[in-house]
Design a protein around this nucleic acid. Structure first.
Lengths: 148, 148
DNA sequence: CTAATACCTAAAGCAAGGTTGAGGTAAAGT
DNA sequence: ACTTTACCTCAACCTTGCTTTAGGTATTAG
């Protein structure tokens, strides 16, 4: 079983992050700890999952601020369950899908666009935003408002 | 036809970027200009394509430094042709594909991983790196070294 | 001719996501 | 007991990709 009282160094080693990152996450409100008699941080084992979720979400391109927002949907009173976490992952999977589709559109336009003459011109789907300098207004903007 | 001598303001308006960004790109060596008698920047029209390529590459997640490196493969002596640009786009398409595949693996693992109990444990494909704290060494690391 | 823009340079600032360093306390090994 | 290692806080620093500000020159519109 997992221990009950993790020190910051143990968590850092276990999660493959620096102690400074844990301090940082705590300051940002993404994780919490209580203190030992000697004022050292102690963690419940569910912090491990939080950190792994932070890292996974970052790989998806989700900012710490967004992760923090998502964490506010977790229960305060009890340790989050698998269901609680699954809800998060469901929402993020949607944004991940959107991002993947965006990149796919970008890739598919790329073949035609960078090599051909259209890039930087009026109707290129890759390069086009606020491009109203030509004589007529520009064509559709397919890619510019994609998810970041 | 495109004009021969673009001012910085014209390029900025045409490309939808700020003048300050053009100064910045120039300082970083991504674009070049010559000067008018009154010391103002003047651009050849091929700067438009450069900038659109910069923007497209950024959408793919390519850093300015990498873009600059890629630009060094363009000919110095003549204005780059469609073929020249196509070469760039080919290389980038590969890295874009890699990134897409990485995100797809991430997505496909996500369903099982965040919700289940494995995340933060020894063999989860999403959360796993330098995880040698368990009794045995950890399992394969599927996702951690993916392209950024 | 004059006033409003547009442009110039250099330096500072901003946001994200941390890391590094200084100065000091706590806990653990021998 | 003593020394090393782990931990604490706070502040400063780093990188990327720009923007903003300040102080000054050039160009353009009326």
């Amino acid at each position: 079983m997992s221990q009950a009282n993790w020190s910051v160094g143990e968590v850092a080693a276990r999660c493959g992050v620096n102690v400074s990152a844990l301090h940082f996450y705590e300051k940002k409100g993404l994780i919490r700890s209580w203190r030992s008699l000697g004022n050292q941080r102690r963690y419940k084992s569910d912090v491990l999952r939080r950190i792994s979720v932070i890292k996974a979400a970052q790989k998806m391109g989700i900012s710490l601020e967004e992760i923090k927002q998502a964490f506010t949907t977790l229960p305060e009173s009890r340790t989050p369950t698998a269901k609680d976490w699954e809800l998060l992952s469901t929402r993020w999977r949607e944004s991940l899908n959107a991002r993947i589709e965006y990149l796919q559109r970008l890739r598919d336009s790329l073949s035609g666009c960078i090599g051909c003459g259209c890039l930087s011109l009026k109707v290129c789907p890759i390069y086009n935003e606020g491009d109203r300098c030509g004589k007529e207004g520009s064509g559709p903007v397919i890619l510019d408002r994609g998810p970041m």
